[in-house]
Design a protein around this nucleic acid. Structure first.
Ligand SMILES: [Mn+2]
Ligand SMILES: [Mn+2]
Ligand SMILES: [Zn+2]
Ligand SMILES: [Zn+2]
Lengths: 138, 138
DNA sequence: AGTAATGTGCAACAAAGTTGCAAATTATTT
DNA sequence: AAATAATTTGCAACTTTGTTGCACATTACT
């Protein structure tokens, strides 16, 4: 019994609506991370820009998706596969951006390496974004 | 004989103008990275928004400053201290963002750890952004 | 089915970034 | 040191991206 998108919404105390179902479905079907613009294009039904913004924000708040920092400072989102919850993300994995096909992957099994900070600096969170060529493009 | 901002501009074949001198000076005096908005505020003389955009882009192109990816996807810039040149950045250092004072540091002496990518993925560049509390705020 | 709670779309707005072009500044040549 | 050529600046106009308030629609609850 695979978890449906409705299950996920229910588990997070979110009303089950068309837009949330469609957008969450998109994430489940997508190989890589999605930007706001991708969702506007890919979703068969047409949702208002504002609805998409709010849906994404809600999903981030609930720990359903996480944002990914990129070198060109575009905003990307991907499903949380770790056990994230409202207010507590712990997506401690490396992200990979393919220079060729532009897909952004969550490398869920590549853990964040530890970093030796100078005296006086305390680490709380570490983001690692690697770019290069992905396995489909090599 | 310290290198003046004019020297840096000259070395990069850039005309020595008021805005470029002021903005470059700002970077030299600043402890941390600067956003476009910081420059608009901090520069004593008032420059047009467009001039600031273009100056920053020129400096990035010439390898004088580099951009820093951030979790909240704001665009930050900092001086390149490594031997970067036009078209060839190699700022292989860790960046640190203080959650308390919001300063972003280039940790020039903390080298990027290596990451074990899955089969088929080729690494070209790695960005590491650590957040936490800096030495001034602890 | 009826009511309360929540979410959506629209409109209007704000912020961020881009482009073309004339005027001003800087560099180069005489 | 002028004159000229090359580059840069500021303005205006525009695009793109993101935000907010509110009436209406949908979903959840009794
Ligand atoms: Mn991820
Ligand atoms: Mn740096
Ligand atoms: Zn690829
Ligand atoms: Zn600090």
């Amino acid at each position: 019994m695979a978890t449906t998108v409705a299950d996920i919404l229910k588990a997070n105390n979110l009303s089950i609506t068309d837009s949330r179902k469609s957008i969450l479905e998109l994430f489940k079907l997508s190989k890589g991370a999605l930007a706001h613009a991708d969702i506007e294009k890919k979703s068969s039904a047409q949702f208002d820009r504002v609805t998409i913004y709010r849906t994404l924000q809600t999903f981030v708040d609930k720990g359903i998706i996480h944002t990914i920092p990129t070198a060109d400072n575009s905003v990307l989102y991907a499903l949380c596969k770790d056990d994230c919850s409202a207010g507590h993300h712990h997506d401690n994995h490396v992200h990979f951006i393919c220079d060729s096909c532009d897909t952004t992957y969550c490398l869920d099994h590549v853990t964040i390496p530890s970093v030796n900070l100078p005296e006086g600096f305390t680490q709380k969170q570490t983001d690692v974004v690697v770019s290069g060529v992905c396995k489909n493009c090599e």
